[in-house]
Design a protein around this nucleic acid. Structure first.
Lengths: 342, 342
DNA sequence: TTGTAGGCGTTATCAC
DNA sequence: GTGATAACGCCTACAA
């Protein structure tokens, strides 16, 4: 399939001819490469300016073995939390002159592998995996990530893996959920429900935090942790799901969720059953995304400091690509943002 | 700044040696290029498989003058509507084997120009501008877009410009707002407020639709159209803004907004003043984004068929890049999705 | 059907 | 300081 693609633009060769210098000199001017007299530099720059010449990035990439591109893999680019992460990452990457190649993977492992291949085929310099969903509990499912790391740096946001060339920046979810749950019990709740939607690295850690807090208060941590199928993303369907849990007879007067969307579902659930929030049901979400503001009452939520995480991530990448040594794992502490739902 | 980038991988040359064929043959096998005997094909494929060889996309790109990449420019990649568009576009582009290079521009024109340059510097094959904000009322501000179109195809989503190599897919906002407003008046509203946040191509058209409907009912269309500064994105600040409008003494019992977020602000405003929705205030948003579901009551909203728009957009791009002739402007009709707020 | 060789537009290593 | 020139890894006439 022969395609139009691009009309023939000027190249470094045309410029060199018109400026009566060699291509080498033009290249030097282009790259601010010290050794070139002020006189020729300005002359060359003038020719470049006159033609609005821009060097061909692909050719440059071939020479340098890099197009200065970083790949971002995210399960669902439109999910608020991930969209926000993508936004921050692109911003920070651009500041450092990296372009962002985006690829949405969906939640299926096989698809993730395929999309990873698709990204790698473009010779990106590094790849960022956003969201804890990328690290599966079944470690054999993660082999493809290690394989990638044998080629280029892999940076995980909100997940972690121990392997050379795999780096991670994450927030301490476990502690965060522990503190949220503990606070609910301490301030009077009888039964706190924990709802999560994936048994990912992060899901498991959040669960552990919940267990710990529940045990501290001598509560039944097992029946009070419920897993909502992660195919369910619509708020109403989440509320439906909670209905089904409620119908089993489980009583709870507070909830901590692994995600704001789940919490939004919980609020809808409360509305349906005329359970006043926060009086009879207190809800704490996770991510502090802008979903929190749309809810009524607004959601208290655990802020996992996404902007800081993204900044650390990009710092790590540029450090790595400039051959610096950087820490393999960084962990930040979350903070709870209180709003109307508690 | 010398960077690590990438370890030396195998190249087509290594493969050719090991398979005892020429690089040409390897290339042919790689590209499914008919003329190669079944025997050598399988032999070459075996060598390729054994080494997990992947051709270098950058070198390939240099030869083909294309890396099969499309740039997407969006003002705010985390805004629900735009995030959704990005998601659809990336999906459809990937289906056709194009990678997506993402770039968030912000709302400032100078920044948009800079980001456009940044994207173009990467030699993308085409660029998609998502959101009506890219076409300014002051047409001289749009010159940079025409300049780009002199190089590569430009496709606008929800905007329009008349120029060679600029294509557009849009939804008929004008008609949509007209119909929504007309419906509100017809079903009993006394004074419908129209709120928008940018004097963009689309903002202007929506406004026109409102004016037309208001005039039809002999209403004062001028004082009832208010422009909310588009720096204000937070729902509460939007509600604050509406407060200030309300304080001027303007009375309204219905509202059509150019965006779901504005409508969400309107709902918050209603809550603050204890104005029951929809009984005393009916609200219709725009975009039918998932913000609609989080509101209480849920938002009636104008669905501008984003998925269809994105599909048309990607169809247009691949058509163009395959040298086909495609229509310059496509326009779809919106539809109103009724929910609790009316 | 297969191989040879030149070209794609830069960068970088040498000489000068 | 500057200019040849050989990479970089792939594609593709053109020959054979």
């Amino acid at each position: 399939m022969p395609a139009l693609r691009q009309q023939n633009r000027m190249n470094i060769y045309d410029i060199s001819k018109e400026a009566n210098v060699s291509t080498a000199t033009v290249s030097r001017v282009l790259n601010g490469n010290a050794k070139v007299s002020e006189k020729t530099r300005t002359a060359v720059l003038e020719v470049i300016r006159r033609h609005g010449f821009q060097p061909n990035a692909i050719a440059r990439g071939l020479s340098l073995k890099s197009m200065n591109m970083v790949g971002i893999l995210a399960a669902d680019c439109k999910a608020p939390f991930l969209a926000q992460a993508i936004h921050y990452l692109e911003d920070f990457l651009r500041d450092r002159n990296y372009s962002t190649v985006l690829c949405c993977t969906g939640y299926n492992v096989e698809d993730k592998k395929k999309r990873m291949e698709f990204l790698l085929a473009k010779n990106v310099d590094a790849v960022i995996l956003v969201g804890s969903g990328f690290v599966d509990c079944d470690d054999s499912q993660n082999q493809y990530i290690r394989d990638v790391a044998d080629r280029i740096p892999v940076i995980l946001i909100n997940a972690s893996m121990s392997y050379p060339n795999i780096y991670s920046v994450a927030c301490d979810d476990r502690k965060a959920v522990y503190e949220a749950t503990e606070w609910l019990y301490r301030t009077g709740s009888e039964n706190v429900l924990f709802m999560y939607n994936q048994k990912s690295y992060s899901g498991i850690r959040k669960l552990a935090g919940f267990h710990e807090a529940a045990r501290t208060y001598g509560k039944d941590w097992n029946t009070y942790s419920v897993l909502c199928p992660n195919e369910i993303t619509n708020v109403h369907e989440i509320a439906d799901f909670i209905d089904s849990v409620y119908d089993t007879g489980l009583k709870f007067d507070a909830a901590v969720t692994a995600d704001d969307n789940l919490a939004a579902g919980m609020v809808k659930f409360g509305k349906r059953h005329l359970i006043p929030i926060p009086e009879k049901l207190r809800v704490i979400g996770f991510n502090n995304s802008y979903i929190t503001e749309y809810c009524e009452p607004e959601l208290t939520s655990i802020d996992n400091r996404l902007e800081d995480l993204c900044r650390l991530c990009v710092d790590a990448i540029s450090g790595l690509l400039e051959q610096n040594v950087i820490p393999h794992n960084e962990m930040l502490s979350a903070k709870i943002i209180f709003r109307g739902s508690t």
